[in-house]
């Protein structure tokens, strides 16, 4: 009996916290369906000052799709930003599929001089926050003429060592015997990589990609520094620019921005978890 009660209480507590955790999203969703008038009323105190405090209705009195229409049909800027984000994300992910997988495979499965040093280097780089590499990246990008273009964010991102590390862990776990068998069968190294390595290490690759996707989708530091032209900005820079006077529009746009990320999260949650764990276990 005690156990059941304890369990129930535990579950209740956890559920409550879970609800609290996702409540911001609920606010976002309900807010995006709230009409402009209601929003002004609720958020009036914030917008116009006064003595009152802002309120919030979880369910709007007069739900409307007007804001969605506004975002989707009336604001080509939103789409410009959206596709910028998509381009950045796709670019970096593509780059990582190319470069991170190969690097991880090489580091994981082959012994060569300097391997340890490279591995160490990668780990160190992985840990540095953007402030450290900011200037160096700028210098290179400027020299290469990539400053103020989407490539300025894509290229450095494509070579992120964090993904290498994640994939490395998974590639490490593949039993050598399988590969040996393939070698004996006469398969070339690259074929082994393509046909055996990638499928077997898929969880790792996917977890890296999911993590990177989420990272790129909300990346701010690099775009702020390297993208000057407004038309290149991703959603993460554009959304805050919409003022509170257009609260409905902002909420809608935010909703739409969250949607792809949530979908990816839904698809790859387990990979996400695996990735998180893999990053931690450093054996």
């Amino acid at each position: 009996m005690k156990k059941t009660i304890l369990r129930a209480v535990t579950l209740a507590l956890l559920l409550l916290l879970a609800l609290l955790t996702i409540s911001p999203l609920l606010f976002l969703a309900s807010g995006s369906l709230t009409g402009g008038g209601e929003l002004s009323k609720s958020l009036g105190p914030i917008l116009y000052g006064g003595d009152d405090y802002a309120g919030w209705k979880l369910l709007p009195l007069y739900p409307t799709l007007r804001h969605f229409v506004e975002v989707l049909l009336d604001s080509p800027e939103f789409f410009q930003m959206f596709w910028n984000t998509v381009k950045l994300t796709a670019g970096v992910l593509a780059g990582q599929i190319l470069f991170a997988t190969t690097s991880a495979w090489g580091l994981a499965r082959y012994r060569f001089p300097g391997r340890r040093q490279v591995y160490l280097l990668y780990i160190i780089l992985m840990m540095m926050p953007f402030q450290v590499t900011m200037l160096s990246q700028y210098l290179v990008l400027d020299r290469l003429g990539l400053y103020d273009s989407l490539w300025a964010v894509i290229w450095p991102g494509a070579f992120s060592t964090f993904s290498v590390f994640l994939m490395f862990r998974f590639f490490e776990g593949i039993p050598e015997s399988i590969l040996e068998a393939a070698r004996i069968d006469g398969a070339g190294e690259f074929a082994i990589f393509l046909r055996l390595g990638l499928p077997l290490g898929a969880p790792g690759i996917l977890s890296a990609l999911v993590l990177q996707f989420l990272e790129m989708w909300s990346m701010i530091e690099q775009p702020v520094t390297f993208l000057k032209t407004k038309s290149l900005w991703p959603l993460s820079l554009y959304l805050p620019e919409i003022g509170l006077e257009q609260a409905g529009l902002a909420l809608c746009a935010s909703c739409l921005a969250v949607l792809p990320a949530l979908l990816v999260f839904g698809i790859g949650q387990e990979y996400l978890e695996q990735g998180i764990m893999a990053a931690a276990v450093k054996e």
Binding site: L11, L14, L15, L17, A18, L19, T21, I22, P24, L25, F27, L28, L43, P45, I46, G49, G50, D52, Y53, A54, W56, L214, W217, S218, I220, L235, S236, L237, Y238, L239, P240, I242, L244, A247, A250, L251, S254, C255, A257, V258, A261, L262, V264, F265, Q269, L272, E273
Partner: peptide
């Protein structure tokens, strides 16, 4: 519940900031 706890990871800061403004404003 575990998924719920992980959701914030997926939410871009840009999207949620609006809400933070509403919640934490002096009249929020």
């Amino acid at each position: 519940v575990k998924s719920a706890y992980l959701v914030p990871l997926a939410v871009p800061a840009a999207s949620i900031v609006l809400l933070w403004r509403l919640v934490f404003d002096a009249r929020g």
